[in-house]
Design a binder for these strands. Structure first.
Ligand code: MN
Ligand code: MN
Ligand code: ZN
Ligand code: ZN
Lengths: 146, 146
DNA sequence: CAAGAATCGAGAACGATTCTCATTTTCAAT
DNA sequence: ATTGAAAATGAGAATCGTTCTCGATTCTTG
């Protein structure tokens, strides 16, 4: 996934939302495109070399999330990590480290994803609600904690 | 699931951990047994009629979680909700309301759960890690928000 | 070049959670 | 039953991720 194609889609979506795609927000995008999992404000600040003040970073993340460009992931210690929304990154799931809380993306083979989709729909039908999405978290240990 | 049988198992497990099963902790247990999803410290305090100070409640939750009796669930707004560990409550999954963040337990029919297990094991094998657990969150709207 | 809108940045404020420490309760040994 | 050690309690302070405030700055558009 190249930064530039994602950039175009984000620029367009933010434009529709009446929100500017400033250089700070573009930096957030490229940091997230380069990541293999969701990132917190603090992690992004490190990754970006302190180029953006925390208060601005938090605001950009909030703005981009409410425009549907980023998706939040709530982890341990009250830390929220953001990633590109699935319409930008593609649908995928997460491997969460039970020791340090880090999160890595995992993509299911198409056959398995299809199975999972059916499964979720069946569960929703039986529970008389509409499944608007699903998230499978596989719990294990990351390389650093193994 | 009766409170008393769970109580016995918890008493035993806490005993092994060298931790006392005080009346405050027993109240936490009965509140969680009566719940249909994970509960935060604040929610438990309300549910328990302010019978336990928040600082004690937080400590009991932490102690019981690190003894493996409770499991934390990290939700929006930095709120952590706890539920009985799966060896006490049985393995199950969650329906998370995308509007208010409330969480309800859902149990998969055995056939679906078996399918999901296989699926997770396959993914883990392919990613060269060990799946120690899994959590499926189905996203939808709760009755209150529908 | 304005003027208005949106954004920025520094610091204050907030809120969930954790920590501190003096007091109280529990448990085991006598 | 008494006692001393260990564990738990409770009130309040402290912490830390996050959000808010507001004056300064940057965009956009005519
Ligand atoms: Mn992801
Ligand atoms: Mn549950
Ligand atoms: Zn780890
Ligand atoms: Zn709801």
């Amino acid at each position: 996934m190249t930064t530039s194609s994602v950039d175009q889609q984000i620029r367009s979506r933010l434009g529709d939302a009446g929100v500017r795609y400033t250089t700070g927000r573009q930096r957030v995008t490229s940091a997230l495109v380069a990541s293999d999992g969701p990132r917190s404000a603090a992690e992004l600040q490190t990754q970006l070399g302190s180029a953006i003040p925390l208060s601005s970073l938090y605001r950009s993340l909030a703005v981009m999330a409410s425009a549907g460009v980023l998706a939040p992931h709530h982890g341990s210690q009250g830390v929220t990590r953001y990633e590109l929304a699935e319409w930008l990154s593609g649908h995928h799931h997460h491997l969460v480290c039970i020791d340090c809380g880090s999160v890595d993306d995992i993509e299911l083979p198409d056959a398995l994803e299809a199975t999972l989709h059916e499964l979720v729909d069946t569960v929703a039908d039986e529970g008389h609600f509409v499944a608007l999405g699903h998230a499978l978290e596989v719990e294990g240990r990351c390389k650093a904690c193994k």
